[in-house]
């Protein structure tokens, strides 16, 4: 899987309350989308703008804090294409991958300029930033997470939902008996 996009650069220890404050915890997708980045200082206007095709490029411990999945859903609803960080908070990385959005770690990631083009190659496990002449290795994903991403999320991986289905509130889930 290759993912290209314009970088949206963020810092270290960016937490879930900054990324998506709790007053936007909602069953209404428009409300969820409108909360994206609304408590991240200096990012409020960016969060409200057109983010289709963006790749979040962040520092250490990105997404620390809450397990609220609405925060992860806001990334998809905003059109973010992938997240790459020096390191990812555990619950956040699970949440976005479960919804089918690639979240990968690049421990050698230096600070990069805002809005430059970046490219992720998940098979070759490389991050490329042509403007900075960077070609860096990504931390290998557990094979199950790679399969979850290839399927478009955890529920489709388990054969019980469409890719991206979990991002739609109110999407009905089939009653599953004896999945295993």
């Amino acid at each position: 899987m290759r993912i290209q996009g314009k970088a949206l650069v963020m810092g270290d220890n960016v937490n879930t309350d900054e990324l998506h404050p709790s007053q936007f915890y909602s069953l209404d997708d428009r409300r969820v989308r409108s909360g994206f980045l609304q408590a991240a200082a200096g990012y409020e206007r960016i969060g409200s703008g057109d983010l289709a095709g963006r790749v979040i490029v962040a520092g250490d411990n990105f997404g620390c804090g809450s397990s609220r999945e609405t925060g992860a859903r806001a990334f998809l609803l905003a059109g973010v294409r992938a997240v790459v960080a020096r390191s990812l908070a555990r619950i956040f990385s699970r949440n976005v991958r479960n919804l089918g959005l690639a979240a990968v770690e690049c421990p050698a990631l230096p600070a990069i300029a805002p809005d430059v083009d970046v490219e992720l190659d998940l098979e070759r496990r490389r991050l490329q930033v042509p403007a900075a002449a960077l070609d860096l290795p990504l931390t290998p994903l557990d094979p199950m997470w790679a399969a979850v991403l290839a399927a478009g999320g955890l529920l489709p991986f388990l054969g019980i939902g469409e890719p991206g289905g979990a991002t739609r509130c109110g999407a009905s889930l089939p009653v599953v008996q004896g999945t295993r």
Binding site: R68, A166, T179
Partner: peptide, 20 residues
């Protein structure tokens, strides 16, 4: 350990969860 709602849904459905 804490996780998100899709993780827990899958756990309820399958009885399994991937943890490193």
């Amino acid at each position: 350990s804490g996780m998100g709602s899709t993780d827990i849904l899958a756990l309820l459905l399958t009885g399994e969860v991937l943890l490193s």
